[in-house]
Structures are given as C-alpha cells and as structure tokens.
Design a protein around this nucleic acid. Structure first.
Lengths: 146, 146
DNA sequence: GTATACTGTAATGTCAACAGTTACAACCGA
DNA sequence: TCGGTTGTAACTGTTGACATTACAGTATAC
C-alpha cells in the first residue's frame, strides 16, 4: 500500500502558485487545469495547506498565494499538511500477550519503525520548494536551448 | 494513507519461527495464534516470504523455518517480500503538458521522492532479524528480573 | 493404503480510504 | 445586486486490506 497522490498534487499546486502567480490569477479552476484533477480536489488540498500556514487563499475574490518564502517550505511541511502526522507503518492489532514474542513485538518493532519514519522525514525536510522551483525553471530553459 | 500491517505481521512470524521454532512446530495455526490473525493470512505471508527466499515451508508435514541466518535477514528484505518494490509515493496521473509546471513536475518531484525512498530503505536495511530477536529476549529477561 | 494434519490457493464478504463529481451556501469586488 | 470564487457536504465508483470458508494437494504415521 502506498501513499495517495496528495503530496504530488499539493506540490504541483505550490509550484504553480510560486511560478505562475505573477502572470495568472491562481484560482482553483486554473490550478485544476494544470494538475489535471477536479477543482474541488484543489480546493480541499488548498484548505489543508492553508490550515498548515503554507498558503493564503482569498475567499470571494479568488486566488491563492504562498504564505511564506519558498526557501522556508519543505516537502516535509507539505507532506504533514496533506497526509497528517501518523507514522508510515501500522502494527497489527492483536498480538497474543501470552506469547513471549506477541507481548514484545510492538515495543521491539516499533522502535525500529520509528527510526524509519525519522529517516523518511529527514529526507523530505531536505528539499525545499525553492529547489523544486529552480529545477523546474532549469528544465524549461533547457527546453528552449535544446 | 499508510502501509498495511503486513510488515508487522511478517516480522512477528519470523520472530516466532526464530525464537520458538525449537520448542514448537511452527504451523500456520500456531503462528496465527500468536499474531492474532487468521491462519490463511499467515499462509499467504509465509508464501511471500518463501518466494523471497527468507523461509522454508514444509507442505504436508507442516512447519516453517528460516532459510538463512537471522543476521542476514533485514527488515528491508521482509518489507520488499510483503509490500513489493513500488515506491512509497504516487505521482498524480494527468499533469497538463501545456503548462510549464505540469510538463516538468514528474521529473522534478520524482527525483526528490526517489531520494526519500532510498532513505527509507537504507534505514530498513539497518535492522536485522537478529537484533529484533535479541531485543525480544532482553525484554523477556527483564520481565522476570523485575 | 488409508487416515490425519497441514499447506496452497481461490472465492467471497466486509470495511475503509481515495478520488471524482454535483450541489449549494458564504463571500467579495465591480 | 450580479458574477465569480471559495468552502463543504453528500453521493458514487474504485481499490486494497483483511477475515473467512472451502477444497485440492502433499507428506507422515499407523
């Protein structure tokens, strides 16, 4: 089982706002057209990003903008905003407490899996929106240079 | 969305085989009793572990055993056996190729997410079944020492 | 050789999460 | 007030996990 596409969608939205916000009014309909999903999906994701303090959305008039500099928005921030704080793995529910393995497996395995969670989050935190913006601009420039 | 409990179940099964295999015949029914799941679930997971070369299962007579030393079985081996090789994250399906963000987002974001996958796998690879066995034994010993 | 116990696997049912969509109230600027 | 937009609720289809039943295949014990 894998994560949903929400991190991917949210990152795409943020890149659009950051890179195209000057030229276009970034409404949910405009963003939905770039991402390729329903505008309601965009509005829901924007709601999560807004609750996390990553974007500001203008009700009524429409449009979204970054709430802080892209250098200070990491993939971990986005990930937590859209996927919540729960760990990556789930432990099974009913290990038998009368078995020497069953009564210890959650404690023993949980420690190792928490380390895996930490490693994943550290790597997510290592990428900022600014880097993704630059990489996108670079690829666009390549496109025209050949 | 999070992974299923299969890694947790599979690890529990392996610990039972490794630590209790001497005293008990580790049939799917016995293992199911410790893990707290249906015996068919155990047989399915054992089938995946067998396909990955981690355990041997005796058809007919019954019982499973490790196919190699616990020092050489890492959580990454178990993870790949039961969860497959797919990456952790999914990219959204239909970014708009006419948008400068849409036509680059998969390449740009995919690189960062691959690094996250690698970090997760490296941390999973850092824990062996032997370490989990020792930690379990240690906790059991604590139980009686007080 | 037959009974017994176990594995391997298919089929089915339930449940939860994701994602797409429609609908509509609330909001704001012209 | 009107038109465009956001914020949400509700409904639907799809997918995957997990539990369970059922049964064919296999190996040992007698």
């Amino acid at each position: 089982m894998r994560y949903s596409t929400r991190l991917s969608v949210a990152t795409h939205i943020l890149l659009c706002i950051a890179l195209l916000g000057g030229e276009h009014k970034t409404t949910s309909a405009f963003l939905a057209g770039s991402v390729g999903v329903n505008p309601v999906v965009v509005r829901n994701v924007l709601g999560q990003l807004k609750a996390a303090g990553i974007v500001s959305v203008e009700p009524g008039v429409g449009g979204a903008s970054l709430a802080r500099e892209p250098e200070r928005i990491s993939l971990l921030d986005v990930f937590r905003a859209v996927e919540g704080q729960e760990g990556l793995f789930r432990l099974h529910d009913n290990p038998n407490p009368e078995c020497p393995v069953g009564r210890n497996v959650h404690a023993v395995l949980g420690k190792s899996l928490a380390a895996v969670d930490d490693a994943m989050e550290a790597q997510l935190a290592a990428t900022t929106l600014r880097e993704l913006m630059d990489a996108t601009s670079e690829r666009e420039a390549m496109r025209y240079r050949g």
